[in-house]
Amino acid sequence: MPSEAPIVSCRGLKKRYRTGAVETVALNGVDLDIAPGDFATLAGPSGSGKTTLLNLIGGLDTPSEGEVVVDGVRLGELGKNALTDLRLRKIGFVFQAYNLIPVLSAVENVEFILQLQGVAPAERRARATAALKEVGLEGMEDRRPGFLSGGQQQRVAVARALVSRPSIVLADEPTANLDSKTAGELIDLMARLNAEAGASFLISTHDARVIARSRRHIELTDGRVTSDSAAAREPA
């Protein structure tokens, strides 16, 4: 594994936000590599910069300093549309809430990504149906998000994140709105898909039980990586 090129590589990442006269330093020099197949959790107190870090890695926002490389592509060199296309092809997102398009059914939500990618309709439908089956939602394909439980909605989001076969899935507190049993099931699901599909996962969370299931654990405090279980195993 150490010999493989990382899927994500962050160097000297800083992110400052300015609100009026107040400047917040959300990230203060983050160096981090995510290897192919990693199943990593990112923990830290509220405000420590987890969401900011995921957003920078996912190309949703640009760093104030430093650089993000995803699958060999320097994000800083991409324009707006190229960045959007990179998200479409290489990154799967699972957010805490408001993940799904409310007017589309479960299977249409999953298909949507494939359609943006230009996949032909028949293949689209087949892959989306298979992805929903993978996350245990067989038979619920035609339900709209409003007719699914919170846990089921997050499963649809996971299916959608994986259906395009991304390099990495970024999940920002995906279990925060779920009860602990459902949360555990979702994490088990992600861990299984990580093992089967081989996509890397980076999951931000507060949940100790989620952390317990991860294979790699990263701690963020005040915008810095303060501990990384991978670094402990393989000193840089």
Binding site: L60, T84, L86, L88, F93, I101, L116
Partner: peptide, 12 residues
């Protein structure tokens, strides 16, 4: 929701 669509890779 538009933000979510942008994140997913739908062009603005």
């Amino acid at each position: 929701e538009f933000g979510m669509l942008l994140a997913l890779g739908m062009r603005a």
